[in-house]
Design a protein around this nucleic acid. Sequence first.
DNA 1: TGCCAGGCCGAAA
DNA 2: TTTCGGCATGGC
Length: 271
Amino acid sequence: MQIPCENHTAELRLKEPVSLYHTFFCGQCFRWRPDGDGFFGVAWGRAARVWSVDGVLHVTGSGADSGDLWRRYFDLDRAYADIYTPWLNDPFMSRAVAHGEGLRILAQQPWESLCSFLLSQCCNIPRIRAMVDCLCRRFGEPISFQGLMEYAFPTPERLAGIKEEELVCIRAGYRAKYILAAARAVASGSLDLDRLQSEETEKAREELMRVEGVGRKVADCALLYGLGKLDAFPVDTWMKKARAYHPAYEGEYAGIAQQYIFYYARETGLR
DNA sequence: TGCCAGGCCGAAA
DNA sequence: TTTCGGCATGGC
């Protein structure tokens, strides 16, 4: 089935500066690419082109939408400056925030975030992007948009019905069985991602970690990027290397702090 | 060619 | 509770 080719546009006024580049390339998502003066990608089953001019975020996308989807996706109703200002008294956090100025924590589809970060295990970001792209092309619904054929992220129901051998094409190695275990858990209803959005972070993390291949790191990535739990704090090798302690590392918006730290630490080769 | 990558799992210490 | 090897593969 091909998703109907109905397009929409949205103009979203920004209350503070937003960097699409930092947002898309800080390591939280894998489906956006530079495209002229803007970016092209797929989110929530829509292919879209986004760009920013004079404090307005412009979106043209496939499918119907009033703009609310993108307002939520880019978390535009939250004042990030109010959140990070108290962190700036710490020199390391100050540099990290300056490095990633304008990044937003994207509200991604819960299943997509869980599945993507299951694939992320022990891979660098270019490889994760390649695997996710391959997975979508092979198993996602096609989306015709602006003369291009894009693909939605495959549903858990779709992936639950395939055999592990069919995933060989994405070269996921030992991660393939994790993808299938998670897809089957979601498709069967034993893992209800929608319900977890209204659970406490700790309870939701506990349920996610019952799935094979979901450890603390993958669970926290799914919590932060897919379930809107901004207090989730994925700790990986880069975070361990940072080692420093700061109040921003915990609390209601720890996940936002984590994103600045991760992006800064990775790009500056912190060791 | 070798090291490392947004880790997890299970066994051993 | 912590440590460590194995896992599967590709980017650099």
